[in-house]
Design a protein around this nucleic acid. Structure first.
Length: 191
DNA sequence: CCCTGATTCGC
DNA sequence: GCGAATCAGG
């Protein structure tokens, strides 16, 4: 595939909308996100300060990019209804064994050193997500499902969180929060 | 070990 | 000019 004017236009449009390079590449087809990024740079329209997936600092106040006074007469009333994202069904919700006494106090911390102090916020968050947990069984555990145990293994009332894990961690974000709160900042990241 | 963009360099 | 490989970071 080559960069035809048409495709470049789509690229500019989507990039301007803040779409990620991978999304643009997927839309265009026949190119990878690297190709898109490369092209973006070559076109000069790089900056967007949106590094990383989790970069809430969008802002983009100086978006007004009209460097070309030469108004392009290419008026294309493209009524793009945007891509419709299909929302997957929520939790499978396997029938709960009657009264699920979701112990509020006895927090099932796997490797509990001794006495740790977890912020009430984190605990509240855990209680919250436990409701949303997928309640998966041991068999459903994969490398990227939260392995946080909930309930009492000795009873029916036991399952694993199963939510998407945090990168590299064995737990989801909420559980990571209570799993290892205390951590000395490690300035070490070399391949 | 998912994702993002940025840069390099052989083609 | 192109983009895979790589880098740098969330």
């Amino acid at each position: 595939m080559s960069w035809t004017d048409d495709r470049v236009e789509i690229l500019k449009k989507m990039w301007g909308e803040g779409q990620s390079a991978s999304q643009i590449a997927k839309e265009l087809g026949g190119v990878t996100r690297n190709a898109v990024i490369g092209k973006v740079h070559r076109l000069g329209l790089s900056n967007r300060t949106t590094t990383g997936a989790a970069a809430p600092a969008a802002a983009a106040p100086k978006a007004e990019t009209k460097p070309k006074p030469a108004a392009k007469a290419a008026a294309k009333p493209k009524a793009e209804p945007k891509e419709e994202e299909v929302e997957a069904a929520p939790a499978p919700r396997p029938n709960l064994p009657a009264r699920a006494k979701i112990i509020p106090a006895g927090q099932p911390l796997p490797p509990q050193p001794s006495a740790n102090e977890i912020s009430p916020e984190a605990l509240a968050k855990v209680s919250e997500i436990e409701k949303k947990s997928k309640k998966i069984g041991l068999m459903e555990l994969t490398e990227r499902t939260c392995k946080w145990p909930v309930g009492d293994p000795a009873t029916d009332d036991f399952w694993f969180c199963g939510l998407p894990v945090q990168q590299g961690k064995p737990y989801c974000e909420a559980h990571v929060g209570v799993a290892f709160q205390p951590m000395s900042a490690r300035r070490d990241r070399r391949r």
